[in-house]
């Protein structure tokens, strides 16, 4: 299911003296089955964008295509539930959405809203609690008795239980410790690979974008200013700086090494493993030449 934004603009408090425009003619397509990262400085419009992916916001002008559904400015949109079932959003600090008496009920909330049968919803919950790395006992507990990290996982299971085709992640690891961060990001990557989920990661973290995304869209002052594969995007430090962003640490380190070697490596490396291998190869070649 592709998501296509065409000339999308959005203004908060439209028609009052407090009107504030957040998006200006945003235009891009997220092809089905890809892993996209949307990066931008705070206030670049990325959180406004993400609410358009499942019609929580309707554009002020322009249109959003979600699969074969069109949400356009000025037109009344009916039956948005179908859209919302297909596009799941894990908001920042998703544990703030928990409300049920038990973890089980909370995970079932989404599916039941979308008309899934009770037994099926329960089955999903039991599978998912395992998938997000929690023991089955938590199902009967109150979500408010869990630790922050566990609550986060329950909330994520609650979104996955809707079985969306597209999953939108808004800073899903904020506030977690390093182990928690890695576990959550790896889990989403695995889901993306195994189930062919279209994944949209909205983040500040260049490191996560570099490690996981197929393609990166950069937002700046309410516009999409740059799009491309990570190794292309991160090659151009100057352009990134002009959007108040910095390339990930790994790329900055590569630049230092290139200065040292006085020549560029053959490619922009995105993971530590890649960079180590590349430096080693370069050094071997150098030695062979001597």
């Amino acid at each position: 299911m592709d998501i296509k934004l065409q000339q999308v603009s959005y203004a908060y408090a439209q028609g009052t003296p407090f009107e504030k425009r957040a998006l200006f003619d945003v235009d891009f397509t997220i092809p089905s089955g890809t892993y996209q990262a949307i990066i931008g400085h705070t206030g670049s419009g990325k959180s406004t964008i993400l609410q358009h992916f499942n019609a929580l916001l309707k554009p002020t002008t322009g249109e959003v295509h979600i699969g074969n559904r069109i949400v356009a400015a000025g037109k009344k949109a009916r039956d948005l539930k179908a859209v919302r079932q297909k596009v799941g959003i894990v908001f920042q600090f998703p544990e703030h959405q928990l409300f049920e008496e038990t973890v089980l009920k909370d995970i079932m909330f989404g599916p039941l809203n979308f008309g899934v049968a009770v037994q099926e919803a329960e089955l999903r919950a039991r599978k998912l609690v395992n998938l997000v790395g929690l023991p089955a006992e938590v199902l009967e507990k109150s979500p408010f008795d869990l630790s922050g990290g566990q609550m986060r996982r329950v909330a994520i299971a609650g979104v996955l239980a809707m079985e969306p085709e597209v999953i939108v992640l808004d800073e899903p690891t904020a506030g977690l410790d390093p182990r928690g961060q890695k576990e959550i990001m790896d889990m989403f990557y695995e889901l993306h690979k195994k189930r062919g989920l279209t994944t949209i990661l909205v983040t500040h973290s260049m490191e996560d974008a570099a490690r996981y995304a197929d393609n990166i869209i950069i937002m700046h002052e309410g516009k999409n200013v740059l799009s491309g594969a990570p190794h292309e995007i991160f090659r151009d430090t100057e352009t990134l700086n002009s959007f108040r962003l910095e390339p990930p640490r790994i790329v900055r380190f590569q630049q230092k090494v290139e200065q040292l070697m006085n020549k560029p490596l053959s490619k922009v490396c995105l993971t530590e493993e890649e960079l180590a291998a590349e430096i080693a190869r370069e050094l071997r070649e150098e030695r062979a030449e001597q």
């Binding site: 380190f253 530590e272 960079l275 180590a276 080693a280 071997r284």
Partner: peptide
């Protein structure tokens, strides 16, 4: 992390 990986690569 990187120094360890480099050593593994034989650097």
């Amino acid at each position: 992390k990187l120094s360890k990986l480099l050593q593994q690569e034989g650097v």
